[in-house]
Design a protein around this nucleic acid. Structure first.
Length: 195
DNA sequence: TAGGCCATCTGGTCCT
DNA sequence: AGGACCAGATGGCCTA
């Protein structure tokens, strides 16, 4: 239906609005016939405008549908992002803004971890960890960390240890493991530092 | 009940 | 011309 009316717009019914003056060159009918013609034009215009309204409505509905799909795709992408971000099983679903900020934070923390690991490896030997992808999967043990955090602890899940540093304010090297933990697990309590 | 979050609709603008 | 993208408006749901 849309393609058949693709050239329809609000002016498309102007054809039905011709005045008698515009038709001056056409031989004028007698007055009863003229009244009939005017009524016909009015009816034609009304019908045309109704069609235009339907076409416009259909276009709007199609646009709404596309917009809905677009937003669904966006939400699917956000869900995928949530899926690759570390989270507690019982943690409530991150909101959209939390997801984006957490991802930003997480990437920053991982980058710093790699950078520091790379530096340390460079000091020990000539094999930078950065070029060894398997190193990315190794996570430091919480127990050996100065930042006290325990995923099963009664208080930790809801209020993990707080680290003063934030992505916006680079920390001293000794803080990095702490920062990484915040990026990984302490997101919600870390929010004041993010906003 | 106020405030936050979300889905949807809508009209405008940009892009292909 | 049609679709993608965007931002504002609106209403529903949930929680403190």
């Amino acid at each position: 239906m849309d393609s058949a009316y693709s050239d329809i717009d609000s002016n498309s019914c102007d054809f039905f609005s011709h005045t008698d003056e515009e038709d001056a060159r056409v031989p004028r009918p007698t007055s009863p016939e003229r009244g009939q013609q005017q009524r016909k034009r009015r009816r034609g215009r009304a019908r045309c405008e109704a069609v235009v309204q339907v076409v416009k409505k259909n276009r709007r509905l199609k646009a709404n549908d596309r917009e809905r799909n677009r937003m669904h795709n966006l939400n699917d992408a956000l869900d995928e992002l949530r899926g690759v971000l570390p989270a507690f099983p019982d943690e409530t679903k991150l909101t959209k803004i939390e997801t984006l900020r957490f991802a930003h934070n997480y990437i920053w923390a991982l980058s710093e971890t790699i950078r520091i690991a790379d530096l340390q490896a460079g000091r020990r030997n000539d094999t930078p960890l950065l070029r060894n992808p398997s190193c990315l999967r190794e996570t430091p043990s919480p127990a050996s960390d100065p930042c006290t955090w325990s995923p099963s602890g009664s208080s930790s899940a809801s209020s993990p240890a707080y680290c003063a540093s934030s992505p916006g304010s680079p920390a001293a090297p000794e803080d990095y493991s702490c920062l990484q933990k915040e990026a990984l697990f302490g997101f919600r309590s870390f929010m004041p530092g993010i906003y």
